[in-house]
Structure formats: C-alpha cells, structure tokens
Computed example of a mutant assay.
Amino acid sequence: MIETVTLVGIGTGNPGHLTLDGAEALTSADTILVPRKGTGKDDLAEIRLALLDRLGVTARVAFFDYPVRDESLPYLERVERWHDEIAARWAEAAGEAKSVALLVWGDPSFYDSTMRIALRLTTRDRLRVLPGITAVQALTAAHAIPVNAVNGRILTTTGRRLRDGGWPEGAETVVTVLDGECSFKALTGEGLYIWWGAFLGMPEQILDHGPLDEAAERIIATRAAAREAHGWVMDTYLMKKIDAGE
C-alpha cells in the first residue's frame, strides 16, 4: 500500500527544467510511476524514461495506463470519477511499494490535478511536492516577453472558460492553459494580440505571435499539423489588448 508520494515537476519536457531538488528526489526514489497516455502518445513516456536514464536513476519503473473519461457524466463528476480511477491504477502499478515518485509535466501545484489524485492514496503530511517550470514561464521566456504589463493584472484561465465567457471583463493580460479547441478563435475582432507556443523548451518547440485576427487561422493550422505529426500536442498562449502588444 502506498504511504508516501513524491511529485517532481519536470517542466515542459526539457531536462534543463528539472531542479536539483527534483533530480535528487528521483535518484533516491524506490519506485517511479510512469503513465502511458495511449496510442500515438508513447513518446510522452519515452521523454520521462530518457530523463531518468540521463540522471542514472536505478529505481523500479512501474507503468500504468490512463483511463478514459466518461463523457456522458456532468463535467465535475466526470473528472472526479476519472481521478478515482487514476488513483486506483497508481495503487495497482505500485504493488507492494510504500513510497513512489511521479514525474509531472510543468509544476504539480499549477493547473494540475496530480496532488488531488495523490491525496486519495496518502495524507498531506506524507506528500512531497517539488516545483517545476510552468508552461506559462516557458512561453513568456521563449517569446522574451514579461507576463504582465506594468502594474497590470494577470488572469490565468482555461479554454473552457474562455469559450463560455469570452474575453474576461476588465482583463489586461489573459493566459490560457488546457485548451484543446483553440478557443481564441472566438475572440477575433476584439483587438487582441497573441503569443502562442507548443512543445515549449523541447527540440520540437513551435512559436507564433501577432495580432489575433491575422494569427488565429495560422496557429490553428500549425497546431493541427503538429498534432498529426506527433500524435499529441501541448501548447499554451497569452493574449493582451492590441495596444499592449510587443
């Protein structure tokens, strides 16, 4: 039965995003859980395995498969049940291991549910979380832009909320994560500027930016081509009113 869980943020896949604390935690781990995302996404597991190999990690690696969400359920219930099933699969993969570690994309405390899942199997005082580089940090660094205007407010939201509510009232800078449907396309004509990036920090990194009215269709096409080529894509974007452009 799992007693302690260590979550190690690994940034967006670049080994350079791993902190020294994270590297130490992985090299001293007993068992490391590695998810398989499904058909066409095996390289997500391979990136994790390559990172472990680079560090010289000798811990047992246990694989688990992600379950499929039940799309017939209301959203919150769907996610809750999905997390329950993931936790059960962690426990099954861990076997007799009492202490496990997981490599988490980005930062385990930022727009990620890995901590919520871990707390189904252990207590908060037995959960160790080591931060990593977020996609937002990687995006703004790649474009060499600050995330905020001087004395400006920042709103981080999801594609779902952007689709449902449009441009948030009074917003100056909006960062959008978890958007598989390019929700920015609904905001053309509103005088926005977009900075977009996929595979941030990785050799496959793709960047684009410009007035949203000009860049939207270009980004959509680029994203679709990248997904077709790799079987998956991780991307994020930041938008500002046009007068806050470059």
Rank of each mutant, 00 (worst) to 15 (best):
M1G: 15
T4P: 10
T6Y: 04
T6F: 02
G11F: 11
G11E: 01
T12C: 15
G13I: 05
G13H: 05
L18F: 03
L18T: 11
T19F: 03
T19S: 15
A23S: 04
T27H: 05
L33D: 08
P35D: 01
P35G: 04
R36Y: 09
K37T: 13
T39V: 13
G40C: 08
A45K: 12
I47D: 12
L51M: 15
L52N: 15
T58R: 15
T58V: 14
R60I: 13
F64S: 10
V68R: 14
V68M: 13
S72K: 12
S72M: 08
P74D: 01
H83W: 03
D84R: 08
E85P: 09
A91F: 01
E92R: 13
A93D: 10
E96N: 11
A97S: 15
K98C: 10
S99W: 12
L102E: 10
W105T: 06
G106C: 06
D107K: 04
P108I: 10
S109H: 07
F110Q: 04
I117P: 11
A118K: 13
L119A: 12
L121D: 12
L121K: 14
T123H: 13
D125T: 05
V129I: 10
L130C: 06
T134G: 02
T134N: 00
A135I: 01
A135R: 00
V136P: 00
V136Q: 02
Q137H: 03
L139Q: 00
P146S: 12
N151K: 08
N151G: 13
I154A: 00
L155Q: 13
T156E: 06
T157G: 04
G159Q: 01
G159F: 00
R160V: 02
R161M: 08
G165V: 03
W167F: 14
W167K: 09
E169D: 14
E172A: 08
T173L: 03
D179G: 01
G180I: 03
G180K: 02
E181T: 07
C182N: 13
C182Q: 11
S183R: 02
F184Y: 12
F184A: 07
A186L: 08
T188L: 07
W196N: 03
G197H: 05
F199G: 02
I206D: 07
L207N: 03
D208N: 05
A215D: 02
R218G: 06
I220T: 12
T222R: 15
R223T: 00
A229W: 04
A229V: 04
W232E: 04
V233R: 05
D235C: 10
T236L: 02
Y237R: 09
Y237S: 03
M239Q: 06
K240W: 04
I242A: 15
D243A: 09
